Amino acid sequence: MQTIRIKAVPADTGHQTGQGAEKDLLPLFAGAAVAVGAVGAVLALVDLSSPLRGPFTLFFLLAAPGAAIGAALRALTPWGRAVVCVSGALAVNLLVAQGMLALHMWSVRGGVVAVAALSSLVLLLTAGRRLRRRAAQRRSS
Rank of each mutant, 00 (worst) to 15 (best):
G128N: 05
M100D: 06
R132A: 15
L101S: 11
G20M: 06
L101C: 01
A89H: 04
A82M: 15
F60S: 09
P10C: 10
A136I: 02
F29N: 12
V113G: 02
T77I: 01
A114V: 07
A97C: 02
L131Q: 14
A21N: 07
V42P: 00
G111N: 12
A97W: 01
A67Q: 05
M1Q: 08
S87M: 10
C85R: 13
A114W: 02
R132G: 04
L62F: 04
G54E: 15
G99E: 05
A32T: 13
V115L: 03
T3F: 01
Q19C: 04
G99W: 03
A11Y: 02
L45I: 15
V34F: 01
L25F: 09
V39S: 11
A97Y: 01
L62P: 00
M1R: 12
A135V: 06
L124F: 01
V115W: 00
S87T: 15
R132T: 09
Q2V: 08
L131N: 10
L58N: 13
Q98A: 15
G18D: 07
F59Q: 10
A67N: 05
T17A: 10
G88I: 10
T3S: 07
A41Q: 04
R130F: 01
A117M: 08
R139E: 15
S50G: 02
F60N: 07
H15R: 12
A102T: 08
